[in-house]
């Protein structure tokens, strides 16, 4: 997902008997569906896990602009260019909503940025894959935003108020993202044989990386168990992945494209599709920094930060000067 393998406390979920009075009252509020707000009491583990999760989510929105930004100047029509620009701008907004939510937990924006640039914090594995053709803009909107929506819709109900509100705003905007991607795929898939080949090739390359977005199975993870008890994670990775596959198969059929998985078939007894797992060793390599575009992405973020330094400093100096002049005039 946009936040993958987020480490929680690392210990199992505490039983009621093991909880302090404050922890028990906190858990009661969560169980009752109450929202936790920034100034409310919360366990340190809850705060730290949320900073990791929301921070990683925010970084993903920001780094996620790069593979699509790559095609803005090369979009096939002016209309497609304007649409893609609006979509990428939305992703910048998503990053900002999420950074603000993380900041309510007592971490600063600059700290979060530094943690991304130093590699201490991660972003989603999916954005370390290249976007080679225009059809990739279709595949990204359809599959990558589609997978993100799977995770973000339930997170609207998360226990932390600012995170939940950011998710509600984001979800309102995401369906435009997925639809514009599918619209590109429809055009390509119904186009010339060469365009259709490009669409199929994009699906071939993005299918397994999209399945990886949900992260490895976490059915037995203590981190996930704690996050679920705190309602900062709502579904298991496998549940969301299954839902994504079931939703996407008919969409691929409608396009006349083939999902690159010979094992993919409807399982009547389960009421779901059976499908092949992605290559998890590839996933771990990408997370460790060995994906096709990791260094390019980090390089772009570092350059943006360094090149923007004079703007950040200059505008602060200008604001200070203006404020001083105003005081002097009074």
């Amino acid at each position: 997902m946009y936040a993958q393998m987020v480490q929680s406390t690392g210990k199992g979920v505490k039983t009621r008997a093991e909880m302090t009075e404050e922890e028990a009252r906190f858990q009661d509020r969560i169980d009752a569906g109450e929202k936790i707000e920034p100034r409310d009491w919360m366990p340190e583990g809850y705060r730290k896990t949320l900073i990791r999760q929301i921070g990683q989510h925010a970084h993903s929105e920001i780094v996620g602009q790069l593979p699509e930004g790559n095609w803005i100047t090369r979009a096939p029509t002016l209309e497609r260019k304007a649409i893609l620009l609006a979509k990428v701008q939305d992703e910048a907004g998503h990053g900002l909503y999420l950074y603000c939510a993380a900041e309510t937990l007592g971490v600063s924006r600059d700290e979060l940025t530094q943690d991304l640039l130093s590699g201490r914090m991660k972003y989603s594995s999916i954005f370390n894959y290249p976007t080679l053709t225009w059809a990739d803009m279709g595949a990204v909107g359809w599959l990558v935003d589609g997978a993100a929506i799977m995770n973000q819709v339930p997170l609207q109900r998360t226990s932390y108020g600012p995170y939940s509100r950011a998710m509600i705003r984001i979800c309102k905007e995401e369906s435009f993202h997925q639809r514009q991607g599918y619209d590109i795929m429809m055009k390509m898939a119904k186009g010339t044989p060469e365009q259709k080949r490009m669409a199929q090739d994009a699906l071939n390359r993005f299918w397994y990386p999209s399945l990886m977005m949900f992260g490895p199975s976490d059915a037995d993870s203590v981190h996930s168990a704690q996050s679920m008890a705190w309602k900062i994670k709502i579904n298991t990775n496998d549940e969301l992945r299954q839902k994504f596959v079931d939703q996407t198969v008919p969409q691929a059929e409608l396009l006349g494209l083939t999902i690159p998985d010979p094992e993919l078939k409807w399982n009547e007894a389960r009421g779901h599709h059976d499908f092949s797992q992605p290559d998890w060793s590839e996933f771990f390599a990408v997370i460790q920094g060995d994906g096709p575009c990791n260094s390019e992405r980090m390089e772009a973020r570092r350059k943006a930060w360094d090149d923007g330094a004079w703007v950040r400093e200059g505008l602060m100096a200008h604001a200070a000067k203006k404020a001083a002049r105003k005081v002097a005039a009074e």
């Binding site: 900041e103 600059d110 950040r312 505008l315 604001a319």
Partner: peptide
């Protein structure tokens, strides 16, 4: 000098006739 821009809270009036509502925050120099 710290160059981190201060935090601002944002309130928006969605339509004519209703009150401003808090929608989120952002950083800006002024």
């Amino acid at each position: 000098m710290s160059t981190e821009w201060p935090l601002w809270e944002v309130f928006i009036r969605g339509q004519h006739g209703i009150s401003h509502r808090h929608v989120g925050s952002l950083h800006a120099p002024d």
